[in-house]
Simulated scan of single mutants.
Amino acid sequence: MPDVLFAACAFLQGWTSTAWVVANAKLVPRHGGAVFTTAISHIFAWLILMFAASIDNWRIGLRPSALLQKARGVPWKLAWIMGLGWTSTLFLVSAAHSLGAALAQVLVLGGELSTAVLADAHQDKSPVPKEHGWLQVLLSPALALLGVTVSLAQELISVQFTQAAGFHFFLVALGAFFCGACSRFRQQSCLVLNSVGNTHLREHIGPLNASAWSAFMASLGNVVICVTVEVFGFFHFQEDTRPTTLMLWAVVGFAGMWVTLVVTFVPPRIGFARTFCLIVAGKVTGGLFVDALGLMSPGRPVTLLRALGALLVLLAALQRIGSQKQQHGHVKSENVEVEVEVAEATAFGRRSSDTD
């Protein structure tokens, strides 16, 4: 398959992520709350990832006993609970229902990019290169926050708020930003509370096994939340088996499967940098498209400020990737980068076979 098709898959993954958000937001009133739809979505993701991990383990000849032995070697034990960060996506579903798909995506991406500097510093424990300085390092979060501010300004201009409605708006917006701050997209992984934890798991049990475990922990966390709100009467689950509801769940399941396929197979072909930026581009343009068509109520036209806010977030993603490549000495040749990534994946498969 030509690289352009892999790039198209990455861009489409951004659109499928938006479709996941929209479908979940549509399901919220049908099932009684975002906590229920998010929990079911994460269970879907866990089943898909577990299937993919099982196939990969079978392909490389990694038996359950050998996988368990590898798991015991994880030095940072807290890494096993980091999948609970997935539970924060319920804020994203709630935000999309109230703020629209575009603003919700901008807020989440803004939170993600704004906290990336701190998370990477904690993970890499490397000082800022003198030749770049803090100004270049902080440019990405600054652009992201500016994009968030511009997008919020457009919403404030478009809508007349009462005091109660304004407080609810900022609370939901803060929740969406918090969702992004607690989740970061990393190569061959899904949303996690802290990429440090997922990195530790990946190094010992592989990317798909680590992602499957994270999804399992997210499912457990969401089930606990669902039981809690049901018992205390905050929300009540409503059964809905209408054909349109089943179609929405089919969209959620397909989107989850597509995310898994893209983040597993696309980065080794076109590089993580291109994959990440194309996904961000897909998310912001997909959100604008959804709002323009009025798929989320009420419809929100694509104005200059909305487009500018989305563009600033995309520029923040591009700048961050460029800064990371310069700071960590990534090779500039995309062909060499792909060969290195494939070699690392092959080495992991060989180590698994040797251990087995």
Rank of each mutant, 00 (worst) to 15 (best):
T115L: 13
W249M: 04
F276H: 09
S158A: 15
A316V: 10
F178N: 12
C190P: 06
S98Q: 14
V252P: 00
G147D: 03
R274I: 00
N198M: 13
I279F: 03
E239A: 10
F235V: 08
F289Q: 07
R202F: 03
H97Q: 14
A71M: 13
Q188H: 03
I225S: 14
S94D: 03
D56L: 11
V137I: 12
A164C: 11
G133I: 12
V192I: 14
T18G: 15
S195A: 11
L312A: 08
Q13G: 07
A347S: 13
A316Y: 05
P207D: 01
A153N: 11
I43W: 09
L191M: 09
P268A: 06
A10C: 06
L304M: 10
V150L: 11
G110K: 01
W86K: 05
K130N: 04
E239P: 01
A273R: 09
F161E: 11
C226N: 13
L12A: 13
A79E: 02
H200K: 14
R63H: 01
S65W: 11
A164D: 15
V284G: 04
V262E: 02
N198H: 12
S88L: 13
Q105F: 10
W80F: 07
R350E: 08
G206R: 06
I43N: 04
W80Q: 03
E341Q: 14
T115K: 04
A307R: 03
F36W: 11
L118G: 06
V290Q: 03
R184N: 09
A176D: 01
L293A: 04
L208C: 09
L171A: 15
N209M: 02
G322F: 02
S195H: 12
R59T: 10
I225K: 09
G299P: 11
L304S: 09
D3Y: 07
V331D: 12
G287M: 08
L208I: 10
P2D: 04
E334S: 06
V192L: 09
L67W: 05
R351V: 09
F254Q: 03
Q163N: 09
T264E: 03
P127V: 08
A142E: 07
P64W: 02
W20H: 12
G294S: 02
V342Q: 15
D3V: 06
R242E: 06
I270Q: 05
F169Y: 11
G206M: 07
A273I: 00
G175Y: 01
F289V: 05
C182M: 15
V148C: 15
N198P: 06
L314M: 10
G166R: 13
M257N: 07
V196K: 05
T18Y: 04
A23R: 00
F161N: 13
F91P: 02
S94Q: 14
G309S: 02
A53Q: 02
L135V: 11
V22G: 00
A79P: 08
F170P: 07
N57M: 15
S214N: 12
L295E: 03
A104P: 00
V137C: 07
Q327K: 12
W20L: 13
F91V: 02
T38C: 14
L156E: 14
A212K: 04
I81H: 06
